[in-house]
Design a protein around this nucleic acid. Sequence first.
RNA 1: GGCAGCGUAGCCAAGUGGUAAGGCAAGGGUCUGCAAAAUCCUUAUGCCCGGGUUCGAAUCCCGGCGCUGCCUCCA
Length: 469
Amino acid sequence: MKMLIYNTLTNKKELFEPIEEKKVRMYVCGPTVYDRIHIGNARTAMVFDAFRRYLEYRGYEVVYVQNITDVEDKIINRMKEENRSFEEITEEYTDSYFEDANALGIKEPTYAPKTTEYINDIVEFITDLISNGHAYQVDGDVYFRVKSYLKYGQLSNRSVDDMLVGARIEVNEKKEDPLDFALWKSAKPGEPKWNSPWGEGRPGWHIECSTMANVLLGDTFDIHCGGTDLIFPHHENERAQSESRTGKTMAKYWMHSGMVEFGGDKMSKSIGNVKYIEQLLTLYDRPTIRFYLLSKHYRSPIGFSVARLEESKSAVRRIYNAISMVEEQLPQEVKEGRYDEEENEQFNAEIEKYLDDDFNTPAAFGVIFDMVKNTNSLLSSSIGNAEKMRLLAYYHLIKKWGKLFDIFQGSKQVDNRLAVKLIELLLDIRQKARDEENWKIADEIRNGLNFIGIAIMDTPNGTKWRYST
RNA sequence: GGCAGCGUAGCCAAGUGGUAAGGCAAGGGUCUGCAAAAUCCUUAUGCCCGGGUUCGAAUCCCGGCGCUGCCUCCA
């Protein structure tokens, strides 16, 4: 097995070789808890969670760290705007993050460290940087000395000289150099604060990730992930801090997921095109949203629109229908669990081939649809035992990958016997109406059931029903 | 201006040297009392434009054009 991943640090696909043979340690930049998460936040979380699932499928033990940033300017702004306490805000949005992530089928990280619980480690980290000359204190602030880290700019492919040309660098007379960034900020009245050797204050934006990654994953770990918008300055600065402190490589591979674009504009708070996951989940189910987000390569930008979600909904339904039809037509064989192993292996290998190549989920989905097509084709013709075994090979394989990526739900289980009996009763009545060619009554029942989410299919083998999405 | 990347059918999207996967939509069948969120088939002599390399290019090189992200709020 050879797995390739695109490394932002080198701008090319590289053979993935974890530090420890069977273990992968990865860090994903998680949410700042000042608001509900939107589709863009969800993409990053979902893409790397899916990649984690695949690594686990491939036999790696994955230590997956995704932080919760609960100290940050945006939280403080929100505090002021809403006149609420710091704790109220961070607790509310930490809870809502996990609620939304859970609803999307994103697995719990191995560790979900919060900045506020690592203040001592952060202070220690900064102390080390000051003592080895990479940081300096001015009044109650501490800044990182960018020019002391020779590789600064390597991750984001820019030179220190070019950065100085940019006009957006904040003028701050306390800094030795305009490029230097804050490790520790002294507290202003009313802001959350912690004690430190430099006085009361709070950590800067980047230091918490460096610290928590170091504590939980060690000086050098395998993969550092996040959205492309974090490459600069966030990841560049994290790397500078960490490597200046340890003198070692922080992360072997840097993976970045593309942005979600809304109407040609990036989904940012300032534009106001926010689609909260909370809202989205009332309109589309989890498999549809997951399929949508995973149906484009993780590194490319993805357009967000109702049309795209509708497409995904139809596509997922197609997979689901094929699976359901096999279960309906071959219930006994499905239970027995036998299938054509050669056929299964062949298609499985193809899916793995694509996923091994920089986690190409859209290409892998293509293979699933090939199997769906084969399944439907076999189902609609009279077949012998060999074909049946092929059919079952597809069935089990589609279910396997569908489950791994959670892109379709299994048959929706009916948990209400009374409801089922009522549906069956209505279908009996409808059948009687149909026998008498009373189409008005028959259609009324069909439309009525349809309205409450029950789809009716008249087939040569009788009337079938299923839940529609 | 700098850096990274993108431009493939009506829409979405794989493919990065060997002759264009897949999805949605559409059209035509099947099924049906009519239907369906069911199913089958069909749908790019061509991959932004112009050169070049090659037996062979969507794929590599050069030059354009257009688009996106980042350049201290961002996942």
